[in-house]
Design a protein around this nucleic acid. Structure first.
Lengths: 146, 146
DNA sequence: GGCGGAATCACCCGAAAGGATGACGACGGG
DNA sequence: CCCGTCGTCATCCTTTCGGGTGATTCCGCC
């Protein structure tokens, strides 16, 4: 509504300006070149002003809300490297987090239970954990497992 | 650099347009009013175009990322009731999920380790789990613990 | 060719966890 | 008042964990 009034008023002023500038004796008093040049400069300025006014609303800052997705789980390889956790250890960490026993893990990976225990021990040392649940907890915090 | 060339070229075109339009016989052929009106409209358009071009860089889109709270954790009391998990058991479940041993839980709750083991056993039965990590896993899925 | 990391396996030992069962007191609803 | 639930504790036994140590094999790298 306010914008409409603004544009209406602007149009009126423009017409008035046109009438004024175009007045007959003014036309005859000066050479056509000067007259045309003046007109050109004047209305170029008017046009620029109009353009500025019209484009002003475009300065509006668009705020786009980007919600963080629920839980895509991005593995933190950097943390893995920092803690010097080997691929095999990481694999076993995942199975521990699944709730499997050392024996079950060994059967699934076709290695002995003793091997799994060795990996697990080193894992706990690297994670600073003394119990399985603790290890899983830390691993989750460090984004090593989902 | 590219912008400079653009503006230079634009200025040249403007001057050429001015010369063309202002040609003498054209001026005499039409009444001054029409001539002025044409000029006005033309250069208003030019001005608007210029204004648009100049103000285009101002329509900057600022993207502000608003992080959404990941997971508020709403306890599923319905699941608790369905599985007939008592308040005490739920409390101990929480401590197990924290990674505490039965002894530590007993000390924290001022009860014997045996009591904790009893609660834990019943808990595992109700959760259908045979190991701590498994129990914690299920409890998390069921929204019984964070 | 030696060196170090990674993966594998073994043995021992103590601690922790888990299963089964029984028991006892408190408390509340029928 | 009796019965069921809850919380507590115990005892016995088996399984699983976790720590420690040592050894072997393979592979890549200097």
């Amino acid at each position: 509504m306010r914008r409409l009034l603004l544009y209406g008023g602007l149009g009126g002023v423009l017409l008035a300006l046109l009438q004024l500038v175009e007045y007959q004796h003014f036309v005859r008093a000066y050479p056509g070149e000067v007259y045309g040049g003046l007109l050109a400069v004047l209305f170029t300025a008017v046009g620029i002003a109009l353009g500025l006014r019209w484009t002003r609303p475009r300065e509006v800052v668009r705020v786009r809300e980007v919600p963080v997705p629920a839980e895509p789980f991005a593995l933190d390889r950097e943390a893995l490297r920092r803690l010097a956790i080997t691929p095999r250890e990481h694999e076993i960490l995942g199975l521990i987090a699944e709730g499997l026993s050392n024996r079950e893990i060994g059967q699934r990976l076709f290695v002995s239970e003793n091997t799994v225990k060795t990996h697990a021990s080193r894992l706990f040392a690297k994670l600073g954990a003394r119990r399985r649940v603790e290890a899983v907890r830390r691993a989750r915090e460090l984004r090593l497992v989902p």
